[in-house]
Design a protein around this nucleic acid. Structure first.
Length: 495
DNA sequence: ATCGGCTCGCGCAA
DNA sequence: TGCGCGAAGCCGAT
């Protein structure tokens, strides 16, 4: 760790240049935290600190807490609120205040404050989702003289640096990411508050501390099921989970595709909320696996073939398999949402998939379920119900089941548009890591062939890859999985 | 148990 | 212009 590392300009984009106004007397620089809910290893915060230092102003961190955000409910709100509380504590050590604006007008309220403070510079997290872009546009419209700087603190290689277009598949983005990793997979500098931070006492109006009790009450009403979610939130919980995962990293290569085993990293809620930096996770995994990045990526193909044969995998093989998912596949998701405005609809599917799905529009569906039947896990298929109920009860569905789950929604719904819509609704409502590019891309892969290739033609799916329950049975003990999550398939005790 | 075919198009070699 | 190959599979032949 070095203290003098300057943040890399290539991680930044100027969304609005801003214009110095003669009468303006800016009192603070603002970091608008949205996607990166952490203090350590956060390029956005580090950039904001640098800007504050340069402008000789204290820094204020702001967060807009909406009670409704992209169809999330009480479980996500609770997770977010607890994460924010730990951000406040961590920021306090650096004398940086956190200010939360809440409610439906949270962004507008923030804009009003920015005006009062004559704020000239705001640093904001890069999030490729449409809602963040709309917020950015609204802010720039409200404050045309504001300088708005976007920082990609989520991807190791910034999304606009990796590629200037929507990538076709993992194989096309992989070499581009690998090529840039030596440049961007660097260590993080430590956080030091700006020298002017002591001046925060003179700022008018004073940024006021979040009233956590009030914010808690303002959230969505928790359902009985939400109370069962037992995932600890916050930056330190995220780091603790990373330690837990690293202990079992060697087994990851073999265990991750077995939904009856706790073999996955379980980091995705933390990655989604930015409670831990993917770059930190990558650095830690590489450090313990005792190999260089290049050596690890060379091992990727090797690991894939060993996996097929269910052979022993070394620590390096497992690390390579994990880094492929953590970096290549996750950053491919951001690439898709960044360059494809229709990332959550049929229009975003590749041409061949749209054609084949259109050709099979009128195919007879063997089963048709309502959204409620899906939601309550009341289909004829206990494997599907188990996956759904695992998600409802725990806030996460095993990664291997997610594909099967989404493909069956296509199979048992009247058309692909409705299937995609419902899959997104359910994932965003029940998964702690919902409302994320990973979720939208996973669903688009399953239903619309995004990042996939065509396979043989069949009813409903056309040439979009099909998955059958028999495939699950071959890979793991399906009965054990069903017994764990959907015992007595007809009971509807949850709802 | 294992293998080829299914089926499309990107990206690179030539 | 040709060709290899790919986000996690299925199916039937051997």
């Amino acid at each position: 760790m070095t203290n003098i590392t300057k943040t890399d300009k290539r991680r930044q984009r100027v969304l609005q240049a801003g214009a110095a106004v003669a009468s303006a007397q800016p009192q603070v620089v603002v970091y608008w935290m949205t996607r990166e809910m952490r203090v350590q290893d956060n390029w956005s915060l580090l950039t904001a600190i640098e800007v504050a230092q340069e402008q000789q102003l204290p820094l204020v961190v702001m967060y807009n807490l909406k009670s409704e955000y992209l169809g999330g409910g009480a479980r996500q709100y609770r997770f977010k609120l607890e994460g924010l509380q730990s951000v406040e504590v961590a920021l306090h050590k650096h004398h940086i205040p956190l200010m939360v604006t809440a409610g439906d007008d949270a962004e507008a309220d923030m804009a009003t404050l920015l005006k009062k403070w004559d704020v000239q510079t705001v640093v904001v997290d890069c999030n490729p989702l449409k809602i963040q872009r709309q917020w950015n546009v609204a802010l720039m419209k409200a404050l045309p003289n504001l300088s708005l700087i976007e920082v990609d603190a989520h991807n190791i290689v910034p999304v606009w640096e990796t590629s200037d277009k929507q990538e076709w598949a993992a194989r096309t983005i992989r070499p581009k990411i690998h090529k840039r990793l030596p440049d961007f997979l660097t260590d993080f500098p430590e956080v030091h508050s700006p020298k002017q931070q002591r001046l925060i006492a003179d700022v008018h109006p004073q940024p006021h501390a979040p009233k956590w009790k009030t914010l808690e009450k303002a959230g969505p009403k928790p359902h009985a099921i939400d109370a069962e979610i037992a995932v600890a939130s916050g930056e330190s919980a995220a780091h603790k989970q990373l330690e837990v995962f690293i202990e079992r990293l060697k087994e990851y290569g073999i265990d991750r595709n077995d939904p009856t085993i706790d073999g996955q990293s379980d980091l995705s809620p933390y990655l989604h909320y930015g409670m831990i930096a993917p770059q930190r996770v990558a650095l830690s995994v590489i450090a313990v696996s005792g190999a260089s990045v290049n050596r690890l990526f060379d091992a990727r193909a090797n690991a894939a073939s060993r996996e097929k044969q269910s052979k022993q995998m070394s620590l390096a093989d497992s690390a390579a398999a994990f880094l492929e998912e953590l970096i290549v596949r996750r950053e491919l998701s951001d690439n898709y949402c960044f360059y494809q405005p229709h990332y959550d609809s049929f229009a975003g599917f590749p041409e061949w998939a749209q054609q084949t799905l259109n050709a099979h529009r009128t195919d007879q569906r063997e089963y048709l379920y309502t959204l409620k039947e899906f939601e309550q896990g009341k289909t004829h298929d206990p494997a599907w119900n188990a996956a759904q109920l695992q998600m409802v009860r725990t806030g996460k569905m095993h990664g291997y089941m997610r594909m099967y789950w989404a493909k069956k929604i296509l199979e048992w719904t009247k058309d692909p548009e409705q299937a995609q819509k419902w899959a997104i609704v359910l994932n965003d409502r029940y998964s702690l890591d919902g409302r994320d590019p990973n979720g939208y891309v996973g669903i688009a892969w399953s239903i619309g062939g995004v990042h996939d290739r065509p396979w043989f033609d069949r009813e409903v799916f056309g040439t979009v890859r099909f998955m059958a329950q028999s495939g699950l049975k071959k890979k793991f003990d399906l009965e054990a999985y069903i017994a764990q999550w959907a015992p007595g398939i007809t009971s509807g005790t949850l709802f």
